[in-house]
């Protein structure tokens, strides 16, 4: 079986695209949940970069890092969603621009 190789830069490009999509989502979406999802999208993009570089360097440290990213993402999701729940209970909205009282 012969597998034709793929340049690693393609992976990096993909991850860049995903990351930028995530950023775009963060900036342009108005629902708190979608913004959260965009963050996850960014994290995924970064994870792909980690793993791609892991391949590049032939070291698995990148895997570990992306594992940590995942774990942190999970924790973040738990807390974040709990916050969203609370916010929704308190204010009855999920519009991100409506939640702007946390300022000086």
């Amino acid at each position: 079986m012969h597998f034709s190789p793929v340049p690693l830069s393609w992976y990096l490009t993909l991850s860049a695209i995903l990351f930028v999509l995530g950023v775009a989502g963060f900036i342009y979406r108005k629902s708190v949940i979608t913004v959260f999802l965009s963050i996850e999208l960014m994290l995924n993009g970064v994870n792909l970069t980690f793993i791609a570089f892991s391949y590049q360097l032939h070291r698995i440290d990148g895997h570990i890092y992306s594992l940590f990213v995942m774990v942190v993402a999970a924790a973040e999701a738990a807390v974040g969603l709990a916050i969203i729940l609370t916010v929704f209970k308190n204010r009855g909205t999920l519009q991100i621009d409506e939640v702007d009282t946390l300022k000086l």
Binding site: I33, L37, E40, L85, I96
Partner: peptide, 29 residues
């Protein structure tokens, strides 16, 4: 791990919350 943690836990949590809140389509702001 991606599938288990992200797909199976994190995203399910999201979906769960979306359903729980019955979040509708977003409004322009």
């Amino acid at each position: 791990a991606q599938m288990i943690v992200y797909g199976g836990a994190v995203m399910v949590l999201f979906i769960f919350v979306i359903m729980l809140l019955n979040a509708g389509a977003e409004k322009p702001s």
